[in-house]
Nucleic acid binder design. Structure first.
Lengths: 218, 218, 218, 218
DNA sequence: CATGAATGAGTCTTCATTCAT
DNA sequence: AATGAATGAAGACTCATTCAT
């Protein structure tokens, strides 16, 4: 009857067999849910509504995901990994810390422009982590990898003598913050923010702020 | 949750009698709700829970507010105006665009540090604007005033010859974005972000990027 | 979102204010639920069905009870206390252990005959305690008081020299078991069991088995 | 849960082909289900959970049984026949009504002690018969055979002059009730009931109550 | 002004069952 | 003979809101 026992320790890692069709469905649902959340808001994105958009029955979602929470977790993963993969691949193509940094910024904005939906959804999910624990867990999963990546670039720039002296960790947070902050405004109103213009301003800013003083050559 | 988000202009022009006690109750509820949302998350902040924290009955909220949505609207207003008022007063004390810009940044971070709860709540509410209309309405209310303020400072700096040439509107968005982006990370995890350090980095960045090239004098 | 947190330690003891009307409603719901369970079975007694029988909305039950489980708990309490109160009052009217024991048996069967519904419901709820812990908790609440009562009577009989030597605790369990076992069959099929006849047989049995051997005087 | 409890006589007369492997699977499932129900409770024993324990897919159960109800019916049959077969075989080894009666009691308790799981499950299923019809059908299947058996023993004892005068049918119900009632308490809490002690008390009781008055020889 | 009580819409979830493979 | 996938019905529960007092 009631009783939410059921010990059952199995979690996300290899939650079952992971058939091909299983994974396909999961991806389909995740993708569709992102669209639903982007257009209606997380709060309105009930399982019923999401299922409706996919054109399946509500219970199919429950069948493939352990619950609404796992679905959202999966959405976050998809969103982050998609974006990270893109950025990393772009950065790797550049040589030298300065070029890599510029690549990072450019890739970030390029990806944004092409995947608005992703970010609208992301911002909505951002707020939904109620407890302090959930928030900091999300921070560890979502933000830290980005900051680490940036930090590495910055550190390399210092070692190569390209960059001035600063705390890599702090500047990384600052740079990532600047990118996200612009993105945020753009999520709220696409028209009100000149995305490309902001990107350009940021590129300049980061270039200037990493340059060694005195030496004019950036 | 609900959110039929009726933009609905009714607000300041006295929605009713606006007795003194009436206003006091409203403020009390708003303040308490901010705390509740900050600690439990918007989704968990049901009227029941908020009422509980205030120590009143659920219906009191319904009595004083037109509904949950209006309460949240009021919270947003309170949050924004409190912050804006503080920042504006600090900026006004400075003379010269460069000093004002620096004042803006410093005030922003000073206010953050003293009112963490406000920002945790703000970030949570951010995501809750489901429709595009609600989002852009929020943008117009929340972001535009800040950007306009910054824009004015930047424009003044250009007129005074202190700042280089740039599009004030775009740089304003960029600066505000950078501030908010850092704030966001700090909301997710207080420990993981060196707020003061980031603030300092931003101050440098904005200083450099507004400076006229060639002339080293900032 | 989800998150079944809500610390909230308040339990049954004085779960709120316990207004008069509150208590009345609770009793009304409990009574009605007993009828529903008796006629349809616990598994079929959904909140909807129970609410229907009371003629109220489903949510009224949720309003007055912390959940279906608490309702059932309350039903069990009501069932047990009603029966215990009746039996105790009857037993107290008798003098001497032998008379009291007979009184206990007679009262048990008298109450059964007049409250069939109660016992049909009870038997249904009996099985619903899934875990071993739940079962033994129920045992401690439901059975132990009865056994203790019987035990006291038996012990008194031994002290007074009326009863032979035996282990009071064990005989108490045996006697209570015999009563319940007959009740059980009667619950399954009213027609198939001669309740009064069984009661009489049990009375004789208990009388004989408590008598001191040799001495024919019972 | 479900339980449209269709009395439906289809059963032994080969519901299908009744291959050997077919029957083996059925027995395997029944046995496993008993364990599951005993440990988790009938309500928690969903087909999924039972299938899990067997290590097969849910649909296998649906394939071999006409539905959950038939599975449970089969469990009841298995439980009853196992117990009855054991008791009958023990009783048959004794000669004389008095010895047979004692054998019946002893066998009942011996079987209990060795098959606790069976009885835990049985008690759980007991309550699940919602309607009056289902209850009385169960009574006819489960209890009547036992009572008839006891009744025959008692009647023989009277014919042989071993037993006093009483209504065999009624005393049979009483005796069976006493056994089951003790069992019930023991199901609720193994520790709280001295099974052997109760068995001994019952043996004495039945012996005394069947004895012819006046003549002390039992 | 305030509140306890009630409500109905809506949410997630569970489950037995069916079906194509 | 078995199964993974899908489904729809039903369940408990939550919540903002209304209303009489």
């Amino acid at each position: 009857m009631r009783s939410k026992n059921i010990p059952d320790g199995r979690k996300s890692p290899g939650r079952k067999k992971s058939t091909f069709i299983e994974e396909a469905r999961r991806r389909q649902i995740v993708r569709s849910a992102i669209t639903t959340i982007a257009s209606a808001g997380l709060a309105q994105a009930s399982l019923a509504r999401i299922a409706d958009e996919v054109g399946i029955s509500k219970s199919v979602i429950s069948y493939h995901f352990d619950g609404r929470d796992e679905l959202i977790e999966e959405i976050v993963n998809a969103l982050l990994s998609e974006s990270n993969r893109f950025i990393r691949s772009r950065v790797e193509q550049r040589t030298g810390a300065r070029a890599k940094l510029r690549g990072y910024v450019e890739a970030s904005f390029a990806f944004m422009a092409e995947h608005r939906e992703n970010f609208v959804t992301m911002v909505d999910i951002w707020g939904s982590f109620g407890t302090t624990e959930a928030k900091s867990a999300f921070n560890a999963t979502a933000y830290d990898p980005c900051r680490r990546h940036l930090e590495a670039i910055l550190r390399q720039g210092q070692q190569d003598g390209e960059f001035r002296d600063f705390t890599p960790r702090t500047l990384a947070a600052t740079i990532q913050g600047a990118i996200d902050g612009v993105m945020l405004q753009w999520v709220f109103d696409e028209e009100a923010v000149d995305l490309a213009g902001c990107a350009a301003e940021l590129a300049v800013m980061f270039d200037l702020t990493t340059s060694r003083p005195g030496r004019d050559g950036r």
